[in-house]
Design a protein around this nucleic acid. Sequence first.
DNA 1: TTTTAATGTCAACAAGGCTGACGTATTTTG
DNA 2: CAAAATACGTCAGCCTTGTTGACATTAAAA
Lengths: 176, 176
Amino acid sequence: MGDRPGHDRRAGSSEPPNHLLYLTDDQLRTGIEAMFFAYRGFTAAPDAILQDKDYGRAHHRALHFIHRSPGTSINNLLGILGVSKQSLNRVLRTLIADGMVVSRVGTEDKRERHLYLSEEGEALERELSDAQRDRMRSAYRAAGPAAVAGFRRVLEAMMDEDMLRHYEALGPRGRP
Amino acid sequence: MGDRPGHDRRAGSSEPPNHLLYLTDDQLRTGIEAMFFAYRGFTAAPDAILQDKDYGRAHHRALHFIHRSPGTSINNLLGILGVSKQSLNRVLRTLIADGMVVSRVGTEDKRERHLYLSEEGEALERELSDAQRDRMRSAYRAAGPAAVAGFRRVLEAMMDEDMLRHYEALGPRGRP
DNA sequence: TTTTAATGTCAACAAGGCTGACGTATTTTG
DNA sequence: CAAAATACGTCAGCCTTGTTGACATTAAAA
């Protein structure tokens, strides 16, 4: 297990080749901790806004992806969010009841519902994503363009196939 | 608000300077989505292991940081994890009852408790972090050392002061 | 026409957050 | 030394968000 190819555990063994120093257990552990702490910073801004309103992080996620893919179906959204339909439904129900989200019966396939944000929904989404982008922007700016490219590359390598598909399907200018 | 210095909203405005193209709203949005999808990949492996046992992600976090800072106090752990003492207590109680974590009364200050992992706790922690590191390692390897450096730099810039303090206090070879 | 797919919804439950309120050592301070 | 502050532990209750199971509806597909 310790000598699985490319699996350099680095515990009391001999030194690793210099070009693999970044794969050290210590480096990996630090990366894990960085993800943990950074994710808190990542969600802090929108969470603070949501505290006052009657919504939570789950609502934010739904708003974000409906904004990104106007007209998306429930099934597509389920795949993106990776939750059960019952969980999503509970969130969507409140958003629809509050007039943030509009659900229209599909034109081609009338079993499907197409989801859109209302004006009000767009406004809330904008408020949340502005706050989150501000945080992201200052991090990007502090780190610089080269670091940002690396950041993206590692995150993309961290996704499994399923997520990567959804991530790429959103593309540079999201389509339903 | 649109022309706050360095706040290039890029919505229907003129082109941004070339050297700031990475601060585009589109780029930031993609980074946000990358974080969202990647975090799922990040927690997937340990979550899968925990599903069988009677523990959850919160237990994993406690195990991780006690492993990293043997002898840590409750208060320190609270700061790292950023949860209420009641939340942490619930998790710690089960871990202590199961013999995964040992709590010793402080030597200098007898009000404090010092937390350690038992042999069994170390074993579980190892199982979980091995799985998570495997995932991390393959992402690191796929992205390469330069990307990893950028990844870390952006994540660190994303933390707020409080988290950064805890993150750095853990250091390269964690101390209590 | 039967089957399958997409969706909504009800019920029940669990994990893991939170706050408020106490109780108890123990250390610090005035 | 007495009073206050600190570091816990714990009980109770509540919220969000996740889960599974079951059942109904509608409409597309075979």
